[in-house]
Computed example of a mutant assay.
Amino acid sequence: MKNNENCLIVFFLIVLGSSYNYGQGKPFSTKGWWGPGGPKFSPVVSVNNSITFRLKEPEATSVELHFGEWDVQKKGMVKDKNGNWTVTLDSVPPGIYQYNFLLNGHFRKLDPENPNIKAGTEVYGSIVEVPGDPARFDELQDVPHGDVHIINYRSKTLDRIRKMYVYVPKIYWVSPDKKFPVLYLRHGGGDNEGSWVNDGHANIILDNLINEGKARPMLIVMSNGLIDGSWASGSTVEGMKYLEEELFKDIIPLIEKRYHVSENKEDRAIAGLSMGGGQAVVIGLRNLDKFSYVGDFSAGILSDPEINMETYIPGLFNKSKRLNKSLELLWIACGSKDSRFEGHQQFAGQLENNGIDVEFHEGAYGHEWQFWREQLRNFSESLFKN
């Protein structure tokens, strides 16, 4: 037995020594690093707004491009002798687009050559943007840029550490005596607190608007609207109560302590998309002494005829005078291709029939980021005018 143990020790020493000598015998080299980079493989956006997609999958029997977040185009791709699959889309309008590949009819794959992805509670797809000429309102431009702060804080309401993003305009830092207004902006059920920056370009949109004088400089606070990671947790009556308490006990006090912002309701707005739009309407209309502007972009709970909004906002349709006096703006919006559209029309009509002032906005979109980016732009232009 002892001889066997000795043999094992000798064996491992030989292996370790060989590995060491192998590593020492391969000196580090930067040879080949200094040449120019090769052409981009995928996606390639041309000057005429065509997009070429490529995927190296030599073993695949078929590959199909699924392009778009709502009106999905399905395009078969062609394989060359090197195992590269290719397809080109012509004359794609400027904007943001989600896509992925379908291999062999059932396996979905992201573009491994593209680091830009749509991600929230899961990874949804790869992202490509077609630039505008002139630059789109949601494109990075040569204007004064604000900051995006990522803040970890203790949520006493939920008894855990949470995170929020805060957009601070450039002018904030040269105006120490000015009290800035704040927009509390909430994300959708499949998103997180970073989605309005990463996917929605909220900071870029505000930079451009402020530079053009179309929006008043404001801070945007983007906190997490989920409690247990599920959409339901941010949409139930109980979940709304927790999020409302967190907003007023943890988030707003922290913002008003850390930043020189106004504490007046006239300088506070709340809005959101999808799940967050429902949260904004419920929290905003339940707290008319806290907000003067409320915005919804495509909220699910406002669209479902089985949901009685009176369970979320008791007496909603019986307080038109108070609502109209307290709010500068109640903004309801939904894309006309979205399955939530009809419900939004009905909800807005119900508000109007009960004497509540409301602005209804739509666009030829589904449940997608291009619509929400446009709504954020338009809503922001209407804020804090008084």
Rank of each mutant, 00 (worst) to 15 (best):
L8Y: 09
Y242V: 01
S19V: 15
D177P: 00
F107M: 07
L183K: 02
L110N: 03
G35W: 10
E113Q: 08
P305R: 05
F101H: 01
C7P: 00
K109C: 04
E69T: 02
I9C: 05
K241F: 03
N152T: 13
E306S: 15
S262H: 06
Q370Y: 08
F371Y: 11
L16N: 11
I51M: 04
V128F: 02
G95A: 03
Y259Q: 08
R186W: 09
Q98V: 08
Y365L: 00
S195V: 09
E263P: 06
P94V: 00
A348L: 06
S235P: 05
L65W: 01
Y184M: 09
M1C: 09
T157L: 11
I151C: 04
R162T: 10
E122H: 10
D90L: 06
S62V: 06
S320V: 03
F101T: 02
G284K: 00
Q350T: 12
N6A: 12
F248A: 01
N4Y: 13
V174R: 11
E212K: 13
P144Y: 03
W231T: 09
E342S: 13
V148W: 03
Y167G: 09
H260I: 09
G239E: 04
I14F: 15
G200P: 09
D142Q: 11
G37Q: 12
G225W: 02
G239N: 02
S382V: 02
G23F: 15
G25H: 14
D250Q: 07
G239D: 06
Y99L: 10
E64M: 13
E245I: 08
V87Q: 01
H344C: 13
D304E: 12
H187P: 11
L209K: 00
K26A: 11
I301E: 04
V143W: 02
E244Q: 12
L102P: 00
E256K: 04
A364I: 05
G295L: 06
F384Y: 10
D296K: 01
K319V: 08
P217M: 02
P134L: 05
N100Y: 04
P39E: 15
P134V: 02
T86I: 05
E328R: 11
F11K: 04
K109H: 07
V261G: 03
W33P: 07
I313Y: 02
L65T: 01
V261D: 08
K178M: 06
L103F: 01
F12L: 15
N308A: 06
E328Q: 12
G23R: 15
W231V: 11
S155R: 03
L89Y: 01
Y97E: 10
S298K: 03
K74G: 06
S233H: 05
V123L: 13
F371C: 08
Y312T: 03
V130P: 08
I9A: 10
F297Y: 13
P93W: 01
L13M: 15
G234Y: 10
K249E: 09
V44D: 06
D191W: 14
A215S: 14
G229N: 07
R154N: 14
E263C: 07
M164P: 03
R160Q: 15
T311H: 05
N82A: 12
E374C: 00
N48T: 05
P58M: 09
G335P: 08
Y242P: 00
